[in-house]
Structures are given as C-alpha cells and as structure tokens.
Amino acid sequence: MPRQQQPSARTARRRSYDQFCATARALDSVGDRWTLLIVRELLAGPRRYTDLHADLPGVSTDVLASRLRDMEQGGLVTRRRLPPPAAASVYELAGRGHGLLPVLTALAEWGAPAIGERRPTDAVRAHWFALPLRRALAGLTHEGVLEVHLDEGEFHIRVGGPDAGAEVYGDGPAAHADARIALDAELCLALGRGECTLAEAVKDGRIAVVGEGPLAGELRGE
C-alpha cells in the first residue's frame, strides 16, 4: 500500500478573522504588531529599511521584513529604487496607507492620557510627538511647514493644508520652514491632551515662536 504523501510545505499562518465585518477586515490588514507603527514612520515620507529599523526599537529584522512584505501585498506601501548615486530602495505609503492618518491621529489622542513619566525602558524619537501635537495645530489657517524644537530633537510638521498624499511630518529640521517653535516635551504632550491651548502657551512664554511670515504671525496671535 503506497505511503501517504506528506505536505511539501507548512500550512500558511492564518491571516484573516474570516468575519464579514469592516472592522475585522481592517484588522486583517493592520492588526499585526508593528504595522501601525510602520505607518507612523512612513507618514514622515519615504524611508529606507535601515532607517525604519533604527526608528522602531525592539522590532527584529525578520519581523520588519515580514510586515513590510505584507503591507506591500495589501496595498498599504510601495517600494521604489532611488536613482544613482543613492542606489537604495525606499518604502513609502500608498494612497490606502495615507488613509490611516485619521486612525493614527485618533489613537495618539486616545493614548495620550496614558503617558506619564518616561520609563527607563522607553525609547524616544522627537518626531513621535508630531501626531499628538497635530491636535493643537488643527485650528491654524495659514498653510506652511512648522519646525518644532524639543530637548529630544527636532521635527517638522505640515499645517493648515490638506493631508492627503502629502508628507505629514518629518524627522529633523525642515529644508524651508515657514515658522519655528521651541517647547518642552511635557508641554507638547499637554497640548495633545487638550490640557492647554497653543495660544495660551505662546502668551505665557512657554512656547517661543521664530519667524516673520503669516504662519509665524498667526502663532503669535497677531
């Protein structure tokens, strides 16, 4: 009697909740650990694999590669090759990936009250404060790029205009900033939690505003 043939490959990991539900379908795409944090990083613009790995402390190379592959297949990110002399590949958000901005913004707002004192094990990057700060900047009417200086570093954020398909924020100083502000991380989080307003913090001197254009004037309340 012929011996039963064994499967040639291991059964693929179950990747769907198999529920006819929009929430379940969304979690099929972004419910895995690290996926939404990769989106957070790519909201800052195209990133190389090594840059993503450096700004996602704790993720293994295997998991990061797996998540990026899944996100490509799911239409969340695309990968392209930079022309010489860079000769490197970068990952960037596709339109469906950019559509997660309101989700990340809502999660940042929901999670802000849970941030107390920084724990000894907590990693930190300056641009991680960008999403919480967006809440305080939402009322600005003048469009431009705002450079933000914290003790932890610098980042820049686009304000007063449409978000769709655009770089929402970026790590480091801006190439061309329309205004600059300096504040501490605790105040940045307080603004994100709605504990004070931008106008109040500028008025009492906790935020220093630098710049001469319309955006800087609006920040100063002029």
Rank of each mutant, 00 (worst) to 15 (best):
A106S: 11
G111L: 06
P84Q: 04
A130D: 06
H98S: 05
D70Q: 14
D62S: 13
V103P: 02
A123T: 11
A123G: 10
L146P: 09
V103D: 00
F155Y: 08
I157V: 08
L93Q: 01
P83E: 04
G116P: 01
R135Y: 08
L76N: 05
E92I: 04
A123P: 11
G139V: 04
R118P: 02
R134S: 09
L100T: 02
L104N: 02
L64E: 13
Q73G: 05
R125E: 11
A65N: 09
R67D: 06
L137S: 04
E109K: 07
D70V: 12
D70K: 14
D62P: 07
L64S: 14
W110N: 09
G111F: 07
G75M: 07
G111I: 04
P132A: 03
A65I: 07
V77H: 09
H156E: 03
A126W: 10
A112W: 03
L140N: 01
G139H: 08
G116N: 05
G99L: 07
S60G: 14
P57R: 13
A136D: 07
L82P: 01
V77F: 06
W128V: 00
R96A: 12
A136V: 07
R79K: 13
V59A: 14
R80S: 15
H156Y: 14
G144Q: 03
P102F: 07
H156N: 07
E143Q: 15
A114D: 13
A112G: 01
T141N: 11
L150T: 03
Y91D: 02
P132F: 00
R158W: 10
L82M: 11
A65S: 12
V148E: 01
D151H: 14
I157G: 02
R80F: 15
L76I: 13
F155A: 05
I157N: 03
H127G: 01
V159M: 01
E147I: 06
V159Q: 00
H142Y: 08
V59T: 15
E109T: 06
G97Q: 03
G97W: 02
L56Q: 12
L76C: 09
L150Y: 03
G160E: 04
L140A: 06
E152H: 12
P162S: 09
A126K: 01
L93F: 03
T105C: 11
L101P: 00
G160W: 06
V63M: 13
P113E: 10
V145R: 13
L100I: 04
G139W: 07
R119D: 12
Q73I: 08
L104Y: 06
G111H: 11
E109Q: 11
R79T: 09
L101R: 01
G153W: 06
R67Y: 02
R118M: 01
L82D: 07
S60C: 10
A106V: 04
T61C: 04
R134I: 05
G95E: 15
A130Q: 00
S89Q: 11
H98T: 02
L101M: 05
V63Y: 08
V103I: 01
A65G: 03
V63A: 14
